[in-house]
C-alpha cells in the first residue's frame, strides 16, 4: 500500500531532473505494462473485490438478505473469539505444528533435491524422483490409515520391529500419546510431501549454469564443496522466496491431516485453527464468526509476511516485495 503513494507521488512532472515523470516512464515501459496490467486487473476482480465480504464479520449475517440489511454487531465476534479458551489452544497447536513443519518440511526437501542432483545415473535419478513424489497423490485418508496401522499395538509394523530388536517389551500406544502427536503429523507430512516439495528446488538447480560445475571439477573441488559453494548459493534466492511465503502461511495449515490422524485421546493436541473455524463457523451457519476468524487469520498472515519480507530484505537482500 505504501507503494501506491510512492508511485503516485511521482506522477507530477518532477522537479528532480534525474527522475523522469511517471507518464514518460509509463510510455517507455508500455510493453511491460501491457504484459502485466491485464493480469493485475484479473487479480483485482477476483481477489480484491470479494473483500466486501469482510463486512460480515461485524454483522450477524444471514443469507438471503442484502449486506446492508443485516444486523450490525460491531466487534462482538472478535470478542467472542478472543475470549474463548479453545481459540488459544487451537492456536498453540497450529503454531506448534506449522513451526515443526517449517523446520522439517522445508529443509529436508532442499537436502533431498541437492542430493538427488548428485546422483549421476540418469535412469536411477529419474526413477527416484518420480517415485518420491507419488505419495503426494495419495489422499490423507489413505496415508493416515497407513500410519495408524503401522503404529498400532495390534500387530503394527513399528511395534513389531521395536520388539524384535529388543528395544521394548510391550507394544507402545503411539497414537494415544498427546505429546507425540505433533511429531507423528510432521513425520507423516514429510513422508507424503517431501518429493513433491523438492521439485521446485530441482528446477532451481537445473537453472544453474553447468559450466560452473565443470570448472569446479577441473579445479578438483569435492562434491561437498561443490554443493556448498555452487549449488546452495545458486538456489538461495528460491529458498528465501519460498521461506518468506511459507512464513506467511504459518497460521493456516489446513486441518485434514490433523483431523484424520487424530483421535479422542489426543484432541488437545490435534485441533487446529482451520478446523475450529469450520466447526464453530461455517458448519454451524455462523458465517460472520467464520469471517471474523478469516480476518484474524489474514491479518496475522500479512504481518508475518511483511516481517519475514523485511528481515530477509535487510539481511539477505532477498524479498518478494
Amino acid at each position: 500500500m505504501k507503494a501506491v503513494t510512492e508511485t503516485s507521488g511521482s506522477t507530477e512532472p518532477t522537479v528532480n531532473k534525474k527522475k523522469k515523470g511517471f507518464w514518460t516512464t509509463f510510455k517507455e515501459q508500455k510493453i511491460l505494462y501491457g504484459m502485466s496490467l491485464p493480469f493485475i486487473i484479473v487479480v483485482f476482480i477476483f481477489s480484491y473485490l470479494p473483500v466486501w465480504g469482510w463486512i460480515m464479520a461485524f454483522q450477524n449475517y444471514r443469507p438471503g438478505r442484502g449486506i446492508f440489511e443485516q444486523k450490525w454487531v460491531g466487534f462482538d465476534h472478535f470478542v467472542t473469539l478472543f475470549t474463548d479458551d479453545k481459540f488459544y489452544l487451537v492456536l498453540r497447536n497450529t503454531l506448534a505444528m506449522s513451526f515443526m513443519g517449517l523446520i522439517v518440511g522445508f529443509t529436508i526437501p532442499i537436502l533431498f533435491a541437492v542430493l538427488l542432483n548428485e546422483i549421476r545415473g540418469s535412469v536411477f535419478k529419474r526413477t527416484v524422483q518420480t517415485i518420491s513424489y507419488l505419495p503426494h497423490f495419495v489422499s490423507w485418508v489413505v496415508v493416515a490409515g497407513i500410519v495408524t496401522k503401522m503404529l498400532s499395538v495390534d500387530g503394527g509394523a513399528v511395534n513389531q520391529l521395536l520388539m524384535a530388536l529388543g528395544f521394548i517389551d510391550q507394544p507402545i500406544q503411539f497414537m494415544a500419546q498427546g505429546s507425540w502427536f505433533w511429531y507423528i503429523v510432521t513425520a507423516s507430512d514429510l513422508w507424503k510431501e517431501m518429493g513433491w516439495n523438492a521439485i521446485i528446488y530441482l528446477a532451481a538447480i537445473a537453472g544453474i549454469d553447468q559450466e560452473q560445475f565443470e570448472a569446479a571439477k577441473v579445479d578438483g573441488a569435492s562434491r561437498i564443496r561443490q554443493i556448498w559453494h555452487i549449488t546452495l548459493p545458486s538456489i538461495a534466492p528460491t529458498i528465501a522466496i519460498l521461506l518468506i511465503m511459507s512464513i506467511g502461511h504459518l497460521v493456516s495449515i489446513g486441518f485434514e491431516k490433523q483431523f484424520l490422524l487424530g483421535n479422542p485421546l489426543v484432541v488437545d493436541y490435534s485441533e487446529v485453527l482451520d478446523l475450529y473455524a469450520l466447526n464453530y463457523g461455517l458448519s454451524m451457519g455462523r458465517f460472520s464468526f467464520g469471517t471474523a476468524i478469516g480476518m484474524f487469520n489474514s491479518i496475522v498472515s500479512i504481518i508475518l509476511l511483511l516481517t519475514a519480507n523485511g528481515l530477509f530484505k535487510k539481511f539477505m537482500k532477498q524479498s518478494i516485495m
Partner: peptide
C-alpha cells in the same frame, strides 16, 4: 515484468499480488 528492477510498477504490483496469497473475501462474495 516484476524481475525488471527499473519497472516503476514493480513494488506496487509485487505487494498487490503477494497479499492475495493471504486473504480471501470468503465463499459467499466470490
Amino acid at each position: 515484468v516484476l524481475s525488471r528492477i527499473e519497472f516503476q510498477g514493480r513494488k506496487f504490483m509485487s505487494t498487490f499480488l503477494a497479499l492475495t496469497m493471504y486473504f480471501s473475501g470468503g465463499m459467499i462474495p466470490v
